[in-house]
């Protein structure tokens, strides 16, 4: 398992956001992406996850068999993808069945994010931080080797941040790969020995050209 990003460029609204980014991540490695607002962290993650078309370059995953790279990824974006009208357990069970590859059962996953025994509650009753933790539990109920997480700890307190760092570390020890974007430098790695690489989007070169669509 090896994730290779080759000369990836991304655009939004016809503007180059980043260009020619390359890196590789092997089993058990993580990449922490830092940078200021608007530096293109989210765009980069969405391009890697296949949610935005790349302006150029490729994303490839070794040994992914018949699956495309995005199908082997968990993406945790800014939105939690929880339905307030369903109970927490129903939400988790849906994602487990829809994503396939069951890993932990919902109760165990809730325990892992330190919210045991509340599976029967409607998701609407949770606070922002709790919703975020349920969203993290979603990563645990089915197994995907690559985690793409965007500002995962935004609404979390210090303890939950460390909890998340532990979960990422566990995932890496199980042979996973993770890419995380944060605006605070390395808040995931604190206190946990991660095999991390890091990248600052502010230092990445951007070709200051308009794309073809905008040459119009």
């Amino acid at each position: 398992m090896k994730l290779t990003i080759n000369n990836l460029s991304g655009e939004r609204n016809g503007q180059m956001i980043f260009s020619n980014i390359s890196f590789t991540l092997a089993k058990g490695e993580a990449l922490i992406i830092t940078g200021t607002n608007g530096s293109g962290k989210s765009t980069l993650l969405r391009v890697i996850a296949g949610l935005l078309p790349a302006a150029s370059g490729t994303v490839s995953l070794e040994d992914s068999g018949e699956f495309t790279p995005p199908e082997m990824m968990h993406y945790l974006g800014h939105l939690n993808a929880l339905k307030p009208a369903m109970s927490i357990e129903e939400n988790l069970i849906f994602w487990q069945q829809f994503c396939g590859n069951s890993l932990l059962d919902p109760d165990a996953a809730l325990e892992a994010v330190a919210l045991p025994g509340i599976g029967h509650l409607p998701a609407a009753y949770l606070s922002a931080g709790q919703k975020r933790r349920i969203s993290i539990a979603k990563l645990l109920v089915s197994f995907k080797p690559v985690w793409i997480v965007d500002e995962p700890t935004g609404a979390l307190d210090k303890a939950s941040e460390q909890m998340f760092a532990r979960l990422v570390n566990e995932h890496l020890n199980n042979g996973g790969i993770a890419i995380a974007a944060t605006h605070k430098p390395l808040d995931i790695g604190e206190g946990v020995a991660l095999k991390t690489k890091s990248m600052n989007m502010d230092e990445m070169p951007v070709e200051d050209t308009l794309t073809y669509g905008d040459l119009l």
Partner: peptide, 14 residues
């Protein structure tokens, strides 16, 4: 789309 579910649905192998 508004709650981010659509992104995840698109990424799945269906």
């Amino acid at each position: 789309r508004e709650d981010g579910t659509l992104d995840l649905i698109i990424m799945q192998p269906h």
